[in-house]
């Protein structure tokens, strides 16, 4: 399934660049969660199910919540 992996890899790069570009920190953390989820799909496609599971739980799940909880402690919009 190299076609699916190529699409996912392109999506991964787009999500990574977007999360750096977006000024709104809340959207940036959501996009970062999306990045983690695509990464999780890629791990699963490579057959590393344990790593994919960890990535889904830690990367896409809890760390997005932590980021959002942190954004509320700062200003919502980034200046750079």
């Amino acid at each position: 399934m190299w076609q699916l992996e190529t699409v996912l890899l392109i999506f991964l790069v787009v999500a990574a660049l977007l999360s750096l570009k977006v000024k709104d920190l809340l959207s940036a953390s959501m996009i970062f969660g999306m990045y983690s989820f695509v990464m999780c799909l890629l791990w699963a496609a490579m057959g590393a199910v344990d790593v994919a599971f960890t990535e889904a739980a830690v990367g896409a799940g809890v760390s997005a919540v932590f980021f959002i909880a942190t954004v509320y402690n700062t200003k919502r919009r980034s200046s750079d």
Binding site: F53, T54, A57, V58, G61, V62, V65
Partner: peptide
Amino acid sequence: QGGVILGA
């Protein structure tokens, strides 16, 4: 993984 889900 299970610990993270339980914490979540």
